[in-house]
């Protein structure tokens, strides 16, 4: 009889409360350590997760008081899904930030998506009027 292979998962629901994104990074650090990811990759995952979570907190105008975060270990790849139940957004309408424009603008913020894309191996956005899921992955090697 062959044993059924189980995909390890961690599911986290965090309330939309300032700094609660740090609760998510504590979990990602444990998962990354379990997978044997380098400290550099673990730190990149934590930073991307902070940005995805605060985006969900700040921009979703969520009807729910929570953000859901799923960590799935698929072999040597960590997949993280950050889901809010807010109004959704059109990624094509989000400008790519650059420092020269920001230095002359009153709006210095808006770096979250850029950071997530730079720090993770893959990033996908699925957004409807019922919410947004950001799916990002990081390979061990």
């Amino acid at each position: 009889m062959s044993a059924k292979k189980i995909t390890p998962k961690v599911e986290l629901t965090i309330p939309i409360i300032p700094d609660m994104e740090l609760a998510a990074t504590k979990t990602s650090e444990v998962v990354a350590k379990h997978m044997g990811l380098s400290e550099e990759k673990s730190a990149e995952i934590s930073m991307a997760l902070i940005e995805a979570t605060i985006n969900a907190f700040e921009h979703s105008e969520s009807k729910s008081a929570n953000v859901e975060i799923h960590f799935v270990i698929q072999g040597d790849t960590l997949e993280i899904k950050v889901t809010d139940h807010g109004k959704g957004f059109d990624k094509s309408q989000v400008a790519i930030p650059n420092i020269e424009e920001k230095l002359e603008s009153d709006h210095k913020r808006g770096w979250g998506l850029q950071l997530i894309q730079e720090l993770m191996d893959t990033v996908e956005f699925a957004s409807t009027e019922d919410g947004t899921t950001v799916t990002m992955t990081k390979k061990k090697i």
Binding site: E21, M47, I50, I54, K102, K108, R109, W111, L115
Partner: peptide, 12 residues
Amino acid sequence: VVNSIGVSILIE
């Protein structure tokens, strides 16, 4: 640990 909002204030 930093986030982009805090770093944006450094740009200011």
